[in-house]
Design a protein around this nucleic acid. Structure first.
Lengths: 233, 233
DNA sequence: AGCTTATTGTGACGTGCATCACAGACCCTT
DNA sequence: AAGGGTCTGTGATGCACGTCACAATAAGCT
């Protein structure tokens, strides 16, 4: 994993919507209270039903937010990338974490303590608005996911998931949108409530029909046009 | 439908968490800005993708929050009862409504305009906290629904939905919990991503095995014990 | 490089449940 | 009280897809 430089971290902080209202000085003060932590692929960062006292900001790498369904099955609620937050729910309503967070790749997070977080929110009107926006986004995303899950055909669900990944992680290319993530067929299955085999079969079929292309190094090129922005993740 | 009395309405307002911080005077001032509206069973109160300028408070009756999946299919995201809010998302993030709201029974709502709502939130610290709590509740509920939807067996999903209904609408009884709602098998199916026939068959089976009992006047008595509080709706 | 573990690719099989079809019960409405 | 609409109960049918099984790659690790 490439450790982000001081400059990059500063850039990440500047882009965080809910800290937009802070002065440069306040931002620096905030950063002084922050703990950094590296993590490795498959490491559990946060456990469902634990009481957590931090807000997490992802500085590098990707994580998945999951619910365990049974011993052999998990459902992925979201995938986060650099600059994304998670863990805010437990801080906001004081209950236990509603989902676990597991690393998809090696990476780095920083932890903002409950006290620091509360302080920022209490002293900063725009921070509150940012938090409300964040919650609204999460809720819309969850409802969209519910909609996708109620599609009858497994293939429709998988395709919707690919589109969603394309919107959040895709980079435009002359031929379409490229998703390059450390994601497995099993992960896609856990996102789309289907089995790993169904995903594998669907992808092969989609390659044959020319809708997608598998690139070297885990890239998926989506060639079919998007219907619209939906923010599935 | 029984129209709620002045006194009952006052009682409803007192119990609203996000208005808890208001003085009696402010509460009265707020109520002066409010429009009442009666609705009938099956009436569409709010349409997905519309821009809505009101926060809705249910004074009497029940409504379902739905997403249309296709021409013949809908998914129910939530059922609301007297005292519940809906429509807050469009006000908070300024986007279109993420779901439709349709009346399950005749009833009455009151509409709080965007301006009034914003005014309350701007001038009242505790109102903001109430809103954040509401959003957290909605999000936890959505994630729980996602978990239930990813259960493999239709029967498990239906049973989870019945439990959820019991928690929100049930009244305790010496023999268990009674759900008395104007809900159809089709509604239960739309809550649990299965077909109406599967629900019917499951209910008959559950009656035979003694887990539930169908009472006159649309009541369902759940005899099996609950595992835990989960707030599915 | 070589060995191990994780991931992907495919065939074969069985079944849960969606779907269709229709009958009977139970309403509202006039 | 009649009768049209909605809701419930149940059988028959078919197939999408979950599951098992195993082979072929690819990716990590020392």
């Amino acid at each position: 994993m490439k450790t982000p430089s001081e400059k990059e971290i500063h850039g990440i902080f500047l882009k965080i919507p809910f800290l937009a209202g802070l002065s440069e000085e306040e931002r620096l003060e905030l950063r002084r209270h922050i703990i950094h932590r590296d993590f490795r692929r498959n490491e559990v960062i946060l456990n469902e039903d634990d009481t957590s006292n931090y807000l997490y900001l992802l500085l590098a790498g990707q994580v998945k937010v999951i619910q365990k369904i049974d011993q052999h099955k998990e459902h992925i609620l979201a995938i986060h990338k650099t600059g994304d937050f998670f863990g805010e729910m437990a801080l906001l309503d004081g209950k236990t974490a509603p989902a676990s967070v597991v690393a998809l790749t090696d990476g780095r997070i920083c932890l903002i303590t409950r006290e620091t977080f509360i302080h920022v929110v209490r002293t900063n009107r725009r921070a509150v608005d940012g938090i409300i926006d964040l919650l609204c986004m999460r809720l819309r995303q969850a409802w969209l996911q519910i909609r996708v899950m109620s599609f009858k055909d497994a293939e429709d669900r998988v395709w919707a998931v690919l589109q969603g990944l394309g919107e959040k992680f895709g980079v435009r290319d002359s031929r379409g949108v490229i998703i390059s993530l450390g994601i497995t067929h099993q992960n896609i299955a856990s996102l789309s409530t289907t089995s790993r085999e169904t995903v594998t079969r669907f992808l092969s079929k989609a390659v044959k029909s020319g809708e997608i292309e598998i690139l070297d190094r885990k890239g998926i090129l989506l060639k079919r046009a998007f219907s619209e922005k939906r923010h599935l993740f």
